[in-house]
Design a protein around this nucleic acid. Structure first.
Lengths: 213, 213
DNA sequence: GCGCAATGCATGGGTTTCCATGAGTTGCGG
DNA sequence: CCGCAACTCATGGAAACCCATGCATTGCGC
């Protein structure tokens, strides 16, 4: 419960720091892997568990902030920056881009551990969110092209009749597509389907007029 | 279009700074009001337009970061911090709590103006979001107690019959409540109502079982 | 006490949805 | 060329939903 369900990555070019951090983390029962450079970190294949990246700003190959930016879109763990010569603009940029904390050496063990715990908790939450979303996206991929046209019409609140007219097909056929969509998306009800579509950011194409019914 | 649809508040105890900032903003065609202390700012009644608060960290009555915390829950404009003696922990805390930027004197006019424009744009967006939400909340207040019980059941995807059973009333009565809810919430369709309930954070009480139908 | 809002129920009729059965066309890959 | 997936459509019955009319009870404020 304390060593296998999370991991801490350390990227620092100073071997003594890597060692000290590794020992600190071990003494708190946490698993850690240290890298000497950003390149090593990026290339390594990392276990797929809630994690945290302790990142030094001054690295031999690339600036820590630039690394943050590079891996921003991808699927990366929250970052805790540490630095010997930090400046305010860097810290502002780091936090704005989502870093959990920005610590200047020397920092207290307590501060670092607090940041790490916050980061791992954040990653845990983020992962669970993403897992759910991935499942929905997987279901969406199961839809046929036609079903993908039907979905937005249905969650827009159109009647089957109206949606069918929109696609130029018969109401019967649309009902079949609609039914398949519900099944493939594992939606228990229309309300459910609407919420699922919301999370998949399916755009509302037409909204039914109130008086139009 | 450039002076009346936004305003910049300045809180700084240094009269020269206030004057300089006021002139800078005026030269950019922006309206500004300056205050000498946090107390003055809080007490003043401020125009209800997209705004931005330029806040000095070192104030006579209260620390700028504490002021940020105090007005955090309330309805306050985005903050751009400026300071003569900033430190990294302060900047981290400020940005974490939502500040737009954290500038140390001396800073360039361009940096400040960029931050201000970003802040006002942010506020504009936030206000438009809140305006919509307020309207929905107003509609929600129009609902009777019973209608407020019906809403979550309906958006959970329950059949009228099931929701009625849940409340121990007849299906007919529930249909009437349901209809009133739709009308009062200005929902054009069930899909619409689900999205509205989502934004109002109406919890899902029961979810219909797939096979149950 | 009277009016009014909120809540409750019934009946009836029209519309929509849900589901199953059955079946035809098209296009692609083995 | 055969099978299969995708798309199409019809019919028909059961269930659910929408709506209007009409009415009873309760509790609160004027």
């Amino acid at each position: 419960m304390t060593a296998d369900d999370h991991i801490v990555f350390i990227v620092d070019d100073d071997g003594r720091i890597r060692e000290a951090l590794g020992e600190l983390l071990e003494s708190h029962g946490m698993r850690a892997i240290a890298f000497e450079s950003a390149c090593d970190y990026v290339r390594a294949d990392k276990p797929d568990v809630p994690a945290c990246l302790i990142l030094d700003i001054e690295l031999p190959d690339i600036n820590g902030l630039d690394l943050q930016k590079q891996i921003a879109d991808r699927d990366h763990p929250p970052i805790v920056f540490i630095t010997g010569h930090g400046d305010i603009p860097s810290s502002v940029r780091a936090i704005k881009h989502g870093a959990v904390d920005f610590l200047t050496k020397p920092f207290s063990d307590a501060d670092l551990m607090a940041a790490i715990h916050a980061a791992i908790a954040e990653d845990r939450e983020k992962r669970s969110q993403r897992a759910e979303l991935d499942m929905l996206r997987q279901h969406y991929l199961d839809l046929t092209p036609r079903e993908r046209e039907v979905l937005p019409l249905v969650v827009s609140g159109l009647l089957n009749k109206q949606a069918a007219a929109e696609l130029g097909i018969s109401e019967v056929t649309l009902q079949i597509h609609r039914r398949n969509v519900m099944q493939k998306m594992a939606a228990a009800s229309l309300a459910d389907l609407v919420r699922i579509a919301e999370r998949l950011e399916i755009p509302i194409t037409h909204s039914r007029r109130v008086g139009g019914n």
